[in-house]
Design a protein around this nucleic acid. Sequence first.
RNA 1: GCACCUGUAGCUUAAUUGGAUAGAGCACCUGACUACGGAUCAGGAGGUUAGGGGUUCGACUCCCUUCAGGUGCACCA
Length: 592
Amino acid sequence: MTIEYIITEHIQRAVSELYQTEIGIDNIVIQETRKEFEGQVTVVTFPFTRISKKTPEQTGVELGEYLKEHITEVVEFNVIKGFLNLSIADSYWIDQLLNNVLSQGFGQFPSNGKRVMVEYSSPNTNKPLHLGHVRNNLLGYSVAAILTANGYEVIKVNLVNDRGIHICKSMLAWQLFGNGETPESSGLKGDHLVGKYYVIFDQEYKKQIADLIQAGETEENAKKNAVLIKMAQQMLLDWEAGNVEIMALWSMMNTWVYAGFEQTYNMLGVDFAKYYYESDTYLLGKDIIDEGLEKGVFFKKEDGSVWIDLTEDGLDLKLVLRADGTSVYITQDLGTAQLKFDDFNVDKSIYVVGNEQDYHFKVLFLILQKLGKSWADGLYHLSYGMVDLPSGKMKSREGTVVDADELMDDMIRTAQERTEELGKVDGFSDDEKADLYNMIGLGALKFFLLKVEPKKRLLFDPNESIDFQGHTGPFIQYTHARICSVLAKANYSSKLTLSHSPELTMLEKELIVNLSKYPGFIAAAAKEYSPAHIANYIFELAKLFNKFYHEESILKAEDLNVKNFRLDLAAATASIINKGMALLGIRVPERM
RNA sequence: GCACCUGUAGCUUAAUUGGAUAGAGCACCUGACUACGGAUCAGGAGGUUAGGGGUUCGACUCCCUUCAGGUGCACCA
């Protein structure tokens, strides 16, 4: 039972006894005491003044006296303005450390019996992954890990966009200009090879447009009538008709792409329980259209197209089926949402998709609610801001992207240079070195992307490579390695028993207070689907530990009991760093 | 034009969801026991929280308004 809980209960009793009024939990605000004041736990007394009819100070003193008398852990209190600061006994904090923080399951909530799906990554098969995908992948992976820690059963899925006109463009360009080039013959990663032809298509297409304009066509007509775009459109029709030759080309190029993606995902450290493919799902959703028409949620126009009127909800009319009976984007998303639910019977379904699709998901969820789907309330769009460069927006077609593979390679190389400069890898084997550079490079990248609130957009300057000092992944990794080093020197392996409770220093107490807050951050991160909370918490923890480490010696502590206690404290810190970073998909080294 | 999102130190950002003197990191300046690991620690300087109004004991946070930036408003996905 946490001290906050005990205090809350006693405040209810105190208010009832002192002022003869019952108050709800909502009125009780408990927070951590600010560093400049004495105490660890603070109660805000303003909400009670209306009941007590006294000043905030008087109310605070009365409550403080009551709490001190009735709760053994409350040893002292002071009131400053409307804030009642409580000092909690050292014994409580020591008990927290030894029996809570250091226990096996700390930070892992028991199963809540709920199942949640997290869809993320969602690549197109016509181009390699870029920085935007990296943010998406890291967010998806991390949110999945956080939900798991909160007791959910999590199913990670990837919905691959493997069909459509854009896919045909790279296929066509390869057919026309590829000369049979393969990943083997070119030495290119499969996804990069295909991406190369997507760019070539665009270049050739632009040339044709320019030629047509030269010949007197309007720009609009030139775009419509260029031979290449006509051919691509024909190819899409052939694909939909199941043309054998086209299907063979499609599946061959897909195989290349998937091999490339697999490599990138491995490097990023992300994984999926299931892949959905749009080539399988693009025809879904028609039965939902029928259902909606039956229920009167949708209506049909004279031309046969099907619509929904969302004007009462402040939105517009939305087409859900074309006049010719074929699907649009939202049709298949309606169908896919149903499919996911049918496949896994999930309670919640999270879509990790960029904020340019905010409107789309708003509409999608609203339609499903109107259709009366019982699971519609569990749908959530985890929207994140786009990553842009100093030069502006990234465009795959124009080749102005920060490529995911290159970026990771750069990060790892920088980690290597930095580490070698510091001369810290004596006694490492080549494999260990490679693993370490990978850990640090990717740790820096992941922390950089995850420490910012998802919905904020991110500016990424490739020339100013990511820092390795300060508010960074490597700073935290370093702290961890440092603790491991101390523990190794002391031959620490598991929790030490203390002969008696030591008197805590300010910093020790602060550290324990901090450590015991970990589960609260896990819960908050899940509630808001924001790994940034954990990233910033772990950073604060690492910083605090470094301060403690600097000011109070562990191995040279004044007596054995204090030394053992500090070893436990250090071990607990390392453990939380490790757990928290794991939720971000970041590994921490024992030496670096 | 309409809708949604964002705006905090020079830069990158935080603020326990309405609580105390708005915290950090980078960059800049000054320091740290002959270092339990200096990828560290301590200190300095840097803020009208885009501007204006309102709500209340109390506002970066909620409401109104103006400004700036972004995104979306296809029988594309």
